[in-house]
Simulated assay, not measured.
Amino acid sequence: MKLLLLPILLFAACNQPPIDAAAPAPTETDTIVSQPAARTDTIGYYRKMLHLRHYKPSLKWPVENEPPLSGAILPYKRIVAYYGNLYSTQMGILGALPPAAMKMKLLQEVKKWEQADTLFPVQPALHYIAITAQGKPGKDHKYRLRMPFSQIDSILQMAKGINAIVFLDIQVGLSTLQEEIPTLEKYLRMPHVHLGIDPEYSMKDGSVPCTKIGTFDAADINYAVQYLSGLVKQNNLPPKILVVHRFTQAMITHYGNIRRSDEVQIVINMDGFGYPAKKIDSYKYFVAKEPVQYTGFKLFYKNDLTNGKIMQPEEVLLLYPSPIYIQYQ
């Protein structure tokens, strides 16, 4: 029997008006350097990996069977992240609430996830869209806008108050990862700052962002992995996490060619909204069916609720494999 999958609607960041936010010159920020060591805690690693697979390993999962380098977050903790941009209340919960209220709500979600799966302590995170796709070309006709460093600095300050890690997310528009990732190196050299990349807004055919769904090839993802891996080695950092968003087949091409690295932990994050059955199907066919390393799952406070309900932790944990990264928008 052929299964018909209903498409999940895309959430278009570039529907927001362009922002006149020229970035000031970077300022020096203290970086705490951690020394990575050999692989450790093999017992804890295997137990947690089996738990994510519901103690039923399959032909596809687990993807790898070797503990990560010392200092790695995954799979020892589950990450629960708030996503958004400080200039917009429509792009996610991170910018929709005042900072104090946002942080309190995030910690409430953290507690819910820890109660739902007691094997995994939860690491709170702020996932900030640092480069946003735009509906207008801008001065360089790249259809993307880089947020000012002052905004990123404010995210780092918010994160410090709740011991959160930070993800900086990139929507390239008509630009490339090769052009955009280096602009954030000042922050990516910090041990608690990680990276997200969004194929939805990578318009390789020159289309205007949000007029269609974009795509990244394995080669694009490999560049991000290679870049982060280099930073880890050069600066003696613990492994970085790379989150790659996905909710259609074409958003990632040639997934089998994605090259993993000891220095980088890759999460493919199911990024679509809709009613629970649609989200579960998208996870099953576009994330779990094409395994890379770890998996993530996004929950939308507004869009999921409009289409039925927001899935609760106990429901999300039933997915195979259970997501290790949870994102709220």
Rank of each mutant, 00 (worst) to 15 (best):
residue 128 Y to P: 10
residue 128 Y to G: 05
residue 128 Y to A: 01
residue 128 Y to R: 04
residue 129 I to A: 06
residue 129 I to G: 04
residue 129 I to M: 11
residue 130 A to M: 08
residue 130 A to L: 10
residue 130 A to D: 04
residue 131 I to R: 05
residue 131 I to Y: 03
residue 131 I to M: 05
residue 131 I to P: 05
residue 132 T to C: 10
residue 132 T to P: 03
residue 133 A to Y: 05
residue 133 A to Q: 05
residue 133 A to K: 03
residue 133 A to W: 00
residue 134 Q to W: 04
residue 134 Q to V: 07
residue 134 Q to K: 12
residue 134 Q to T: 15
residue 134 Q to G: 08
residue 134 Q to S: 15
residue 135 G to I: 01
residue 135 G to V: 02
residue 135 G to H: 01
residue 136 K to E: 14
residue 137 P to M: 00
residue 137 P to Y: 00
residue 137 P to F: 02
residue 137 P to A: 01
residue 137 P to V: 00
residue 138 G to I: 07
residue 139 K to G: 02
residue 139 K to L: 13
residue 139 K to T: 12
residue 139 K to V: 15
residue 139 K to H: 08
residue 141 H to R: 12
residue 141 H to W: 06
residue 141 H to M: 08
residue 142 K to Q: 14
residue 142 K to M: 11
residue 142 K to I: 03
residue 143 Y to A: 03
residue 143 Y to R: 01
residue 144 R to P: 00
residue 144 R to A: 11
residue 144 R to Y: 09
residue 145 L to K: 01
residue 145 L to F: 03
residue 145 L to T: 12
residue 145 L to V: 14
residue 146 R to A: 11
residue 146 R to N: 09
residue 146 R to T: 13
residue 146 R to V: 12
residue 147 M to N: 10
residue 147 M to V: 09
residue 147 M to W: 00
residue 148 P to L: 06
residue 148 P to M: 05
residue 148 P to I: 06
residue 148 P to G: 06
residue 149 F to T: 07
residue 149 F to K: 08
residue 149 F to W: 14
residue 150 S to K: 15
residue 150 S to V: 13
residue 150 S to D: 10
residue 151 Q to H: 12
residue 151 Q to D: 14
residue 152 I to Q: 09
residue 153 D to W: 11
residue 153 D to V: 11
residue 153 D to I: 11
residue 153 D to S: 13
residue 153 D to G: 12
residue 154 S to T: 13
residue 154 S to Y: 10
residue 154 S to C: 06
residue 154 S to W: 08
residue 155 I to G: 07
residue 155 I to K: 09
residue 155 I to S: 07
residue 155 I to D: 06
residue 156 L to E: 13
residue 157 Q to L: 11
residue 157 Q to N: 12
residue 157 Q to V: 14
